[in-house]
Design a protein around this nucleic acid. Structure first.
Length: 823
RNA sequence: GCCGGAGUGGCGGAACUGGCAGACGCCCAGGACUUAAAAUCCUGUGGGAUUAAUUUCCCGUACCGGUUCGAUCCCGGUUUCCGGCACCA
């Protein structure tokens, strides 16, 4: 009988679907396991990255199921977003139609890969029954002062025609479309994620099951820096300006101050000064710079004197105030103190504008002079020219100066974060409407919970012109105020899709609930996600937002966990010829093609075998053939041997050498594969199964048909099929049936190995002399170190090699090696 | 510049806690089966020297050094590549 993968796969997919084989519900009699893969955006077709992501997840889910866990393994659609709207602009299809069609196609593709999802729990963020609770989330944040609207300079993508969150700007470019991002002064909605900066950072320590890489990316992104804010008086005025510094120890070395050109107090400060015109000119110039140029280290530091002098509160010195292009309004206070001797940027600026370079931290045992410096000195040293702090280490002085400043009432310790509030409004149609109205009388009014959802209207025009299409839809925009009943206008912006995906893992726990987003007891049963799997591209964006949401919901008592994802696996990319598969490069291998040529099982097997999950995987057509060959090899073995297999207990006392060898390979295989699955080392798990299959062929070769040991063969065939089943579920289920078993293999308990089959009487050990391998010998497995030493020293070969030398020491590791040290 | 990760045959990769480096697979070569081919099965396959021999020996996990009886693994330094952050005060 031939391996007809197409028939087999269709047959079992149909049966699984009809039986609801993977539907799951709460069950307190078994331990639970929540296996989650990042849900896809329904772009139209599954790509290899999806296949890899979901093959890993499915292997995990199926393995855990066989181990007796009650496994939640859901799937859904991150279905709001720009491509749907762009498709609408391009060919007139309504975004909803385009989206539902794509979902149907992709759901079908997932089913053809045989993934064990509980499809009854499917969610789609663009469905009213889902987004009404995304709106609910907004309301809760709003009630708690964590959603607010403010006017500021925001990132604007000219191609997507919408604002973007900071996290969506990568190297000055739009994360989605790669266009250069500009700045616009707009009033926008934000989530106050900065309120959680401290906890989001500190709790990274709790994420023991996350890769270091992701943890370090989040740490960098949140970007904590410790220092102080210090107020400087403006000379001849009662005004003060506050700086943030991480180096309060260098305050005696301040020789100028800089303020961001767009700082709101600048206008007032320079008003009427003779420098005013020059300053205004400079502000204009800086404003014209692109974001990339503005924030590049390579851009020359430039500034202009404001005509204003400041007073250094610690030594009373008068220092000039400059505007400069290297200071940013949105970090710290937007004002910095210039210490040229101890900061490289300040040094460059001071050189250019001839400002004093005063050393206040001297490297130990040296005597640097400011005028001799060719670069700043930023390392540790001893204080000088700093009044009462002279002679201290700068580390101690840093603390003492903060204390002093606090005592003087002119400043305090301060922690700054790089993390900005999350800009969530988008000038786009295909998203969850922000549930807010603007009333002439009451101002901004949130829609009451019981009036959700704010429905997305269907009949809108798509212009792609920088304003939400909703703003042109009068029947949507014109409404009444829920508070006073008077005339009101709706908010026309929709929410960033990352808002929708920040809580979907909770919805899976209770997907059909139409009253509340989820019932607490259900979420408490399933959460945390035991294993989350997805691409590293979400290391900051989605994973940070989801952590923020979970913490907020925890604080409000809606969930009992304050971190959502216990373990995280970031799978590598799928490459072809060394570069990422993409249409423009023309190196795309389509999953459809592979499935029809070799079947889903081969695709899954290859993808898990070719590389460990977290590493990039280079697609290789001939290696795919190899995986297909292996499945055929397994198929033929079962087909040929099925009639000689029985499931009687193996009579382990009466086995010949060949039988013992096969039993050893089978049981060692079970042990190794189990260990490997526990660590998600699917590639080595598969190689172990291959070794077991090779051992089976060797047995078959060595033994005549008439001498087959049926029980040993039965054990071997059954084990191989079971061990492979989480990876290649269709062929194994079919073989399971061919071997005469009934029922669903995916819910059959995972095999256990027989310790006694692994016991061997003799082992090969290595004999080293001075650490170099000189001999190998078979010895009794229970020989202790002493016995091994004697055996080694008795060997003729060893005797010859150590002849005339003195044995200094002998190290013997039981069952492994003997090392004889001679002189 | 700071932070994180990695560097092993022709290729993908293995070696779990310091104990036989290169499992398993791909490629390649040889053999068996076949009228022939395909498929399949078996054998070989890090490099170099050496031998009548499938003998014997040397080198080898980016590089230099250290610790150890013993290092792909631990420590110090160098270097290359990948990823993140970065005129962040």
């Amino acid at each position: 009988m031939k391996y007809e993968f197409k028939e087999i796969e269709e047959k079992w997919q149909k049966i699984w679907e009809e039986e609801g084989a993977f539907d799951i519900s709460e069950d307190t009699s078994r331990p639970k396991y929540y296996a989650l893969e990042m849900f896809p955006y329904p772009s139209g077709n599954l790509h290899m990255g999806h296949v890899r992501n979901y093959s890993i997840g499915d292997a995990v889910a199926r393995y855990k199921t066989m181990q007796g866990f009650n496994v939640l393994h859901p799937m859904g659609w991150d279905s709001f977003g720009l491509p749907a709207e762009n498709a609408a602009i391009k060919n007139g299809t309504p975004p909803a139609d385009w989206t539902w069609k794509n979902i149907d196609t992709m759901r079908d593709q997932l089913k053809r890969l045989g993934f064990s999802y509980d499809w009854k729990r499917e969610v789609a963020t663009a469905k009213e029954e889902y987004y009404k609770f995304t709106q609910w989330m907004f309301l809760k944040l709003y009630e708690n002062g964590l959603a607010y609207k403010k006017k500021s300079f925001v990132n604007w993508c000219p191609s997507c025609q919408t604002v973007l969150a900071n996290e969506q700007v990568v190297n000055g470019k739009c994360e989605r479309c790669k266009s250069e991002v500009g700045k616009k002064d707009l009033e926008q909605w934000f989530f106050k994620i900065t309120d959680y900066a401290e906890r989001l950072l500190a709790d990274i320590d709790k994420l023991g099951g996350w890769p270091d890489k992701v943890k370090s990316m989040q740490t960098n992104w949140i970007g904590r820096s410790d220092g102080a804010e210090i107020r400087f008086k403006v000379k001849d005025s009662d005004k003060e300006l506050t700086v943030f510094t991480t180096r309060p120890d260098t305050i005696f070395g301040v020789s100028y101050m800089v303020i961001a050109p767009e700082h709101p107090v600048v206008a007032e400060l320079i008003k009427g000064k003779e420098e005013e015109a020059a300053c205004l000119e400079f502000i204009k110039k800086v404003h014209g710079m692109s974001e990339i140029a503005r924030s590049s280290t390579d851009t020359e530091k430039e500034g202009v004197f404001t005509g204003v002098y400041m007073i250094n509160p610690l030594n009373g010195k008068e220092i000039p105030l400059y505007l400069a292009n290297y200071v940013f309004l949105d970090y710290g206070t937007g004002i910095v103190m210039g210490v040229p001797a101890h900061d490289q940027r300040d040094f460059e600026f001071a050189k250019k504008y001839n400002l004093p370079i005063d050393i206040v931290v001297q490297p130990e045992g040296q005597n640097l002079k400011g005028e001799d410096l060719t670069e700043s000195f930023a390392a540790e040293g001893i204080m000088e020219n700093s009044g009462e702090f002279d002679g201290l280490s700068n580390r101690d002085a840093l603390e003492k100066i903060i204390e002093k400043v606090e005592e003087m009432g002119i400043g305090e310790r301060k922690v700054n974060f790089r993390l900005r509030d999350w800009l969530i409004s988008r000038q786009r149609y295909w998203g969850a409407p922000i549930p807010v109205v603007y009333c002439e009388k009451c101002g901004t009014v949130a829609i009451p919970e019981d009036q959700l959802p704010v429905q997305l209207p269907a009949n809108v025009k798509f212009t792609g012109q920088g304003k939400s299409p909703l703003s042109e839809c009068e029947e949507f925009m014109n409404t009444t105020c829920p508070k006073c009943g008077g005339k009101a206008t709706r908010e026309s912006d929709t929410m960033d899709t990352f808002v929708c995906s920040s809580w979907y893992y909770l919805r899976y726990c209770d997907p059909k609930n139409d009253k509340i987003p989820f019932a607490k007891d259900k979420v408490d049963y399933w959460m945390n996600v035991d294993q989350y799997i997805g691409g590293v591209e979400h290391a900051i964006l989605h994973l940070l937002y989801a952590r923020f949401f979970t913490k907020f919901l925890f604080d409000q008592g809606y969930v009992s966990c304050d971190e959502p994802f216990e373990n995280l696996l970031t799978q590598g990319m799928v490459l072809k010829d060394g570069s990422k598969m993409s249409k423009s490069v023309g190196n795309v291998v389509s999953p459809e093609e592979i499935i029809s040529k070799y079947g889903a099982d081969t695709a899954r097997l290859f993808i898990l075998f070719a590389a460990p999950p977290e590493r990039d995987l280079d697609w290789n057509d001939t290696a795919v053939e190899g995986s297909f060959r292996f499945l055929n090899r397994v198929w033929r073995a079962v087909d040929e041997l099925k009639d000689y297999a029985s499931y009687d207990a193996v009579d382990s006392k009466n086995l010949n050498e060949n039988e013992k060898k096969l039993r050893f390979a089978v049981n060692a295989g079970i042990k190794k594969v189990t260990d490997d699955f526990d660590r998600f080392n699917f590639n080595t798990a598969i190689s172990s199964i291959m070794e077991t299959v090779n051992a089976l062929y060797q047995y078959k070769d060595a033994v005549g048909v008439e001498d087959y040991n049926k029980a040993v063969l039965g054990e071997a065939l059954k084990s191989i099929v079971m061990l492979l089943s989480p990876i290649v579920p269709h062929i194994t289920q079919e073989l399971w049936e061919i071997l005469g078993n009934k029922g669903d293999l995916s819910h059959t308990p995972w095999p256990k190995y027989d310790e006694s089959a692994l016991v061997v009487s003799e082992v090969e050990v290595v004999v080293q002399i001075n650490g170099k391998i000189r001999d190998k010998m078979m010895i009794s497995a229970d020989l202790d170190s002493k016995g091994m030493e004697e055996a080694a020293l008795a060997s003729e070969k060893v005797k010859a090699l150590i002849d005339g030398k003195t044995v200094v020491k002998v190290i013997a590791v039981p069952k492994k090696l003997i090392n004889i040290v001679v002189k």
